[in-house]
Design a protein around this nucleic acid. Sequence first.
DNA 1: TTGTAGGCGTTATCAC
DNA 2: GTGATAACGCCTACAA
Lengths: 337, 337
Amino acid sequence: MNEHRTQRTARIKDVARIAGVSTATVSRTLSNPDIVSEGTRRAVLEAIEETGYSVNLSAQNLRRQRTGGILALAPNLANPFFSEILSGISDVLRGAGLNLIVGDTAIGDDARLRLVDYANRSRCDGLIVLDGSLDPEVFMRSQCPPVVQVCEWIQGLAAPKVLADNERGAGLAVDHLVGLGHERIGRLAGPEKNTLTQARDSGFGRALGRHGLVPDVVYRGDFSLASGQRAAEQLLGARNRPTAIFCDNDEMACGMMGALRRAGLQVPEDLSIVGFDDIELSRHLTPALTTVRQPRKALGTRAARTLLQQLDGVDVPNETRVPVSLEVRESTAPPAR
Amino acid sequence: MNEHRTQRTARIKDVARIAGVSTATVSRTLSNPDIVSEGTRRAVLEAIEETGYSVNLSAQNLRRQRTGGILALAPNLANPFFSEILSGISDVLRGAGLNLIVGDTAIGDDARLRLVDYANRSRCDGLIVLDGSLDPEVFMRSQCPPVVQVCEWIQGLAAPKVLADNERGAGLAVDHLVGLGHERIGRLAGPEKNTLTQARDSGFGRALGRHGLVPDVVYRGDFSLASGQRAAEQLLGARNRPTAIFCDNDEMACGMMGALRRAGLQVPEDLSIVGFDDIELSRHLTPALTTVRQPRKALGTRAARTLLQQLDGVDVPNETRVPVSLEVRESTAPPAR
DNA sequence: TTGTAGGCGTTATCAC
DNA sequence: GTGATAACGCCTACAA
C-alpha cells in the first residue's frame, strides 16, 4: 500500500526480490505453475499482487521470438462487412492471447510497398488477408509468417482459404427467382477481376443453365451503395429491362433499390432484387431485402482458428467452405405479367 | 543471390558484417542517416538490400521501452459507426509508424478484468477509448499509458476528449423541425447513462426551450436497428403521437422508419424523422434521412493526432469539439394539418 | 565519423 | 524445486 515517488512499473526482478526467490522462479510461476512448490507459488503470487507486476511483453516477445500480434489486412475498415469479420477474428485471437492488428489496404500508392514491411515475422506472427486484390508475391517470401485468406482470395497464392460457398449462394438466388417465374435475370456484379465475383458469376451462369436460361444484362459495381445507385440509373435508361437482378452484395442492392424507388419503380412489383451477405440492415429496408446469408462472424472465427492451427503446426485444409442460405423477404415476387 | 538452406532472416549483425561496419553504424544508418558518411551509408544500404534485412521490432521495442502499438477500445467492432472512426485512426497511426491494435469491449463478463491487462504500458503506448461505459479506474492507474477519448466519454476520467458538438447537433435538428412547424417533437434516445445521449438530451431540451416548447415522448434505444424498430412499435401503439422524432443515431432512425412504413405510416407525411451521424446509408434510404452529420473519419484522425501529441509530451486541449452540420433530406416535412 | 560494450526484461538451459 | 546465467536483437553512451 505504500506509494513510491517514482512509480516505475515493477519488473520481474522486483517481484523476485520481494518474494525472496530468483527471477527464474517467478517466470516459472507464471508460465508453468505446476512445477513450483505450493509455498513458493503463493509467495510469488503475493509479491505480484503487491507490486502490480505484469510481464513486459516486448521482452517476452523478444525472448520467445514472436510478436504476439496477428495482422488483418482489410480493403476498407469502414465497411461493415469487413468489420464484422474482424470482430469474429478478434474474439478468437483474444482467447489465444494474441493482439489483433488491423491494416487498411485501401490507401495511397505506397501501400503496396509498405506491405512488404508488414508481411514480416518481426511484425506479426501471422496474417489474415481479407483483400483479394493484393500482390501474391509479398506473401510468398520467406520472411512472411503464415497466412490465411478469408472471403476473397488472391490468384496464385496457396495460403489456406476460408470462404463462403459463393457458387451455391448464387445458385440459391437463381433457383428462387426462377421458381417465382423469372426468366430474364440480370446481375449487378462486383469488379471483374474479383475472385469472389468470379465465383458467383460462375454459380449464376451454371444455375441459369440448369433451368435452360442465360444471363440477362450484367452491370459492374464496386460493392458500394453509390455503385448500386449508378447501376440503377443505367437500368432505368435501358429499353429492355430484366425482371430481376441478382446483386453481389447488399449494399449495392440497397443503393439500387433506393434509386429505383425514387424513380418511381416498384420493388418487387416491377423488379425483383436479391442481395448477398445479409447485413443487419437488409431486414430493415422497405421492402426488406431477399438475400443470400453469409455468416460473417463465423468466417472470421474460422479464419482465426485456421491460422492458430497453422501456427501450432497442425495441418489445415486448403479450403474451408462456410455454408450460405437464402433469406427470402419482400424484395422478390413473381414478375409482372 | 545465393540461396542459403537455412533461410534465417537477417539480423543487424549480418548486415554489419557484409557492409564491413559495426552494428552501431547500421543502426545509425537506419535511424539517423545524416550522421554517417555518404560512403558508409551506401554500403550499409546495399547490404540491407542484399540480405533483405528489416529491423526486429520486438528487440527495438524492448530497447526503446515502447510497444509500437496503440490500442483502440470500441464497444462493437461490427458497428460501421465505429469502424469509420477506426479507419481515421489507422491512417494517422500508420503515418507515425504505430500499429493499430483493436479491442472489442463488447464481450463476456471477464472483459472488464482483462482491461486491466490491456491498459498497460507494456501492452501499448497509448489508448484510444471509444466506449463511454468502461470503468474509469482502469485508466487512472500508473501503469496505464496516455489515453484519449473519442465520441463517447467516461464520467470521471480526465483524459482528453475529441467530441462532436452534440448539443449543437441536437439544436440544429430541433431548429429545423420547429422551422417546419412542428411543436410536438419526440425523441428516440440512447441509453440513459450514455454521456453522448445526455449531451444530446440537454441540447434537445435547451433548443426546445428557446422555442417555448418542451420535449414530447422519449423512447430509449441502444443505437441498434432493432431498438429503432421496437420504438416504432411503441409509437404505433400510442394514442397521442408526436409529429416528429429526433433519433440519437441513424441506425435507430432507420429501424424506426422501416417499421413505421411497414405499418402503413408515411414518412415524412405522418411523422418526420431526424437521425444523427450521417452514415453512408442514410442518403440511400427512401425517404432519404435528414440527419446531423458527424465527421467520423475526422473524429478518428483528430483523436489519433491528439494522442500522438500527448506521447510527444505536447500539451493538448482537454476537449476538442468537431463541428456538426444538418443534412436536410426527405424524411422531414411540415406536420400534417 | 565510427567502434565497443552494456543493458532493455524475459525465459530456457543447465547445474545444484 | 530452485538458482545462476546466457541469450533474444537492438540502440546509445562513451571512447577512440
